[in-house]
């Protein structure tokens, strides 16, 4: 799980072009949206693409994303349970 979380942080930084943020700067429980990394609605959609492309998980309801994308913890847990690749 720890490995998946590290991998996920790296991918998020790359895909969302988070300049000046390193893997070590993101705590597993940090909120990704709002106060945390300050992600916005386009980032949320981009995370849905990331879930599909990297882990073969299709999220068709954007509302579903809200609970899954709370933090690295919640994302990793969902991926571990539902990944198809």
């Amino acid at each position: 799980m720890a490995e998946l979380k590290e991998e996920l942080k790296g991918k998020i930084i790359e895909v969302l072009n988070l300049e000046d943020i390193a893997v070590a700067d993101i705590a597993d429980s940090d909120p990704l949206f709002g106060e945390g990394l300050g992600l916005d609605s386009i980032d949320a959609l981009e995370l849905i693409v990331l879930m599909d492309k990297e882990y073969g998980i299709k999220l068709s309801d954007p509302k579903q994303g809200k609970s899954i994308f709370q933090s690295i913890d919640t994302m990793a847990a969902y991926i571990a349970e539902n990944r198809t690749k």
Partner: peptide, 9 residues
């Protein structure tokens, strides 16, 4: 086939 919203916009 992975269209990216951040690119498309």
């Amino acid at each position: 086939y992975y269209p990216s919203p951040a690119t498309f916009v």
